[in-house]
Design a protein around this nucleic acid. Structure first.
Lengths: 240, 240
DNA sequence: AACTATTTGTTCGTATGTATG
DNA sequence: GCATACATACGAACAAATAGT
């Protein structure tokens, strides 16, 4: 006589939140669309404003909508990107569930594969973008605000692998390594000399899958070796 | 003269939510601990009950706490696991941001690496567990409720790779492929004959890294080939 | 510049449901 | 049954942000 309990003791705000979520999943609200206003939702669901607000707050916390205040405000459906995965990974890292070393090793495992796939699918337009990005790297040294451009080649390759899951994971790892390492090693740009992506790009443009994998692995090994100076405390512990 | 806007326009509920989140990250509240009750938080933060509730709701939506009501109720810190990553991946899949094919291909890329790492770190105890799980697979055919045990070898290997990030991603992929494929192909168990993991396990126990990678790749190719019968509509479209 | 309309953000008071002892 | 401690829910009111007139 067990396992009979559930009976549904659903919280109103969860029900509202779920219905809205499914509406988004069904495509009834597309990225950029505005959900009904609080007042409308109150009338539709016949619940209090508190319930509606908690429901929308939950959607916001899950990264599904963006709330804007004011006359043209409301809850707008967000374009889902890899940032959500990145945030989750950050949470796990800060909770001590993953070390920096593990993230680096994961990147070392996955990014060469991505580079190989990119070589497989490289189009002339993409090749052009890669070359451009690589040439611009030398210019970024004197513009601190463009430091992020240093990773542009990596992001481009991630986009070229033709697999959105791997793209998302790879971008998450790239960003994670970047943000974490720059927190206690602000001079990361110094150890990132221009021209180091040349061999990777050559292989990718040539469509040399194995070569791209190898070049990427070597590049990462070299780069990660330069990060060794970081205190081992930071590598395995939490940072804030 | 751009990029000057921020100035901090923090919402009270976000501020409360963030402070609680950081408290959890700092280890001031461990898994299982109860956060202060609503009343206490109201006094601590000097805000209204609504604000506190919205903040906690946001933490719940992010999967950080579990809310229970009643005399012993409250917001309890959850043990973070890979399930959160899995849920995010599911959201992305349902939103049409990833196809089933992409998930399968990602698994095909990552799981062999994981198997290789497992071979590298395999201990005698883990070898024992693997053999046990493999032997039990033949028994699961007549017990429908134990179908999940069929994936046990995969989960064990994921746990053995000594990299919690790869473990999380791999488990997410295993579970995703399982839940999605079983939705429109309930007979997945039929096409999963016992003994097919033998060569993988042999290589892992022998510590043969390259062999384990190869065996896993071949196993997955074989398995995924058997899923070809699935309507291509489902493979690229949304399911609910 | 001032006013207005719309929408979200915040507060308070009150009442109800649920689990424990 | 009852008291207690907690979350859940409602409704009214006011504050603040934003866009258009």
């Amino acid at each position: 006589m067990k396992n009979f309990q559930p009976i549904k003791q659903v919280k109103a705000s969860d029900e509202v939140s779920n219905q809205l979520r499914h509406a988004i999943f069904e495509g009834r609200y597309l990225a950029g669309d505005k959900l009904p206003s609080e007042r409308e939702l109150i009338e539709t669901f016949k619940v209090s404003r508190t319930v509606v607000r908690e429901a929308i707050k939950a959607l916001e916390a899950r990264g599904l909508v963006l709330i804007k205040q004011g006359a043209t405000g409301g809850a707008f459906v967000k374009e889902l990107t890899f940032e959500r995965l990145t945030n989750d990974c950050k949470d796990l890292f800060f909770l001590g569930k993953m070390s920096f070393d593990e993230i680096c090793q994961a990147r070392l495992s996955i990014e060469p594969i991505v580079a190989g796939l990119a070589a497989k699918h490289c189009t002339p337009e993409q090749a052009k973008l890669l070359i451009e990005a690589n040439d611009n790297e030398s210019n970024t040294l004197e513009y601190p605000e463009t430091v992020m451009l240093r990773s542009r080649v990596h992001y481009l390759l991630a986009d070229m692998c033709n697999n959105r899951f791997l793209t998302a994971i790879d971008k998450s790892l790239i960003q994670l390594v970047g943000t974490i390492s720059s927190q206690f090693q602000p001079d990361t740009d110094k150890i990132h000399p221009p021209g180091m992506h040349n061999s990777i790009i050559d292989a990718v443009i040539a469509g040399d899958e194995a070569g791209a994998e190898k070049a990427m692995r070597e590049h990462l090994l070299e780069f990660l070796l330069l990060l060794e100076g970081i205190e081992s405390d930071y590598r395995n512990n939490k940072v804030d």
